[in-house]
Design a protein around this nucleic acid. Structure first.
Length: 327
DNA sequence: GCCTTATGCTCAC
DNA sequence: TGAGCCTAAGGCT
């Protein structure tokens, strides 16, 4: 369920664990990933992350392309693999690290922990360094398939610049995104989610970025100004980088949190995302939500200066999104 | 157990 | 613009 921060984090971890090594790539129990054999047993050169896409580059010139979509996720583990579940799609394992064991019940070593931070789960499991990862398993991706280098390059060409793919100070690329946005009449809320404009931003970051810059989400791209767009780009890079490290998207400033706690308490990570019906941390106004192009947009009508009509278009409290979509 | 929701995207019409 | 695909969790009965 990742945005760009998670994708770059997986790429970093899987580079540490597998880059330069021979790996086994196996289809899941249902064998839906039929092309696994094309890279199985080959040397994995390196993992690339662009926007929300992962590309595992192999020495034979092929790429294992993975897009997690909304539901996809990895489980990493140490030691022998255990009992894959039916929904499993694919597995990568260090070659020569022993046979895949399907006899052990339970998965005591498996967890999807943060880099070196505190455990992400409340079950007491401890994180381990990426270098120690022996295998990962994948479930629920939107795509898991083999690309040749032309197909991979075509993907890169299609995607807009990625805030996480650029070094601070070397920000020449955002101009491409900014020019593209300024040429569109579509709302900035939709444009921020458009991977051909900027890649890597998803529903949480778009809502939070628009709030942090007090931008009316319904503003057309061509009515935005360059200065604000530049600021949003820079902010995106900072927030997403932080989200890469602790596997937690935190967009509130300490001074805006009701508790003033650092790190942010549960429920105080976001200004507007999933806070509909609750009071804005900054102005106290009720946070609104609306279905926009199939995704839920959250905003504060006061801080983000929405018009009466835009405010009135928000979903009524208690009404389900599904019934709203059917209108 | 059913319903809803969720950090996404593609394709057919 | 809508349907479809993918999986899991939480709230409700």
């Amino acid at each position: 369920m990742p945005e760009g921060n998670e994708i770059h984090r997986w790429a970093a971890r899987h580079n540490a664990a597998f880059a330069g090594r021979k790996v086994n790539v196996l289809p899941g129990p249902n064998h839906r990933f039929r092309d696994a054999h094309l890279v199985d047993g080959k040397k994995m050169v390196q993992v690339h992350a662009v926007g929300k896409h992962l590309g595992y580059e192999f020495a034979n010139g092929l790429y294992l392309h993975i897009h997690l979509g909304r539901f996809g996720d990895f489980t990493e583990g140490l030691g022998p693999l255990v009992e894959p579940k039916g929904t499993l799609r694919a597995v990568m394992q260090r070659a020569g690290s022993g046979k895949v064991s399907r006899s052990v019940k339970g998965n005591a070593h498996a967890l999807t922990g943060p880099y070196n931070g505190p455990p992400s789960k409340d079950d007491g499991t401890q994180p381990f360094p990426a270098e120690d990862v022996d295998w990962w398993e994948l479930r629920g991706p939107t795509d898991c398939s083999i690309y040749d280098s032309d197909k991979w390059q075509a993907l890169l060409n299609r995607l807009g610049p990625d805030p996480l793919a650029h070094e601070p100070g070397g920000h020449d690329e955002p101009s491409r995104a900014i020019d593209a946005i300024l040429a569109k009449k579509t709302s900035i809320a939709e444009l921020l989610m458009d991977q051909e404009m900027i890649s890597g931003i998803g529903n949480i970051y778009r809502a939070e970025l628009l709030f942090r810059h007090r931008v009316n989400p319904f503003t057309p791209g061509d009515a935005m100004d360059t200065k604000t767009l530049k600021a949003i780009w820079k902010d995106a890079a900072v927030l997403m980088k932080a989200g890469m490290v602790d596997r937690r998207i935190v967009c509130t400033k300490k001074s805006d949190r009701p508790s003033k706690q650092e790190p942010a308490l549960r429920g105080e990570e976001h200004y507007v995302y999933r806070r509909h019906g609750k009071p804005c941390f900054v102005c106290g106004e009720t946070i609104l939500r609306k279905d926009v192009a199939g995704r839920t947009l959250y905003w504060c009508p006061k801080d983000q200066h929405t018009t009466k009509e835009q405010t009135a278009s928000a979903l009524k409290p208690g009404v389900s999104l599904r019934s709203q979509r059917v209108k």
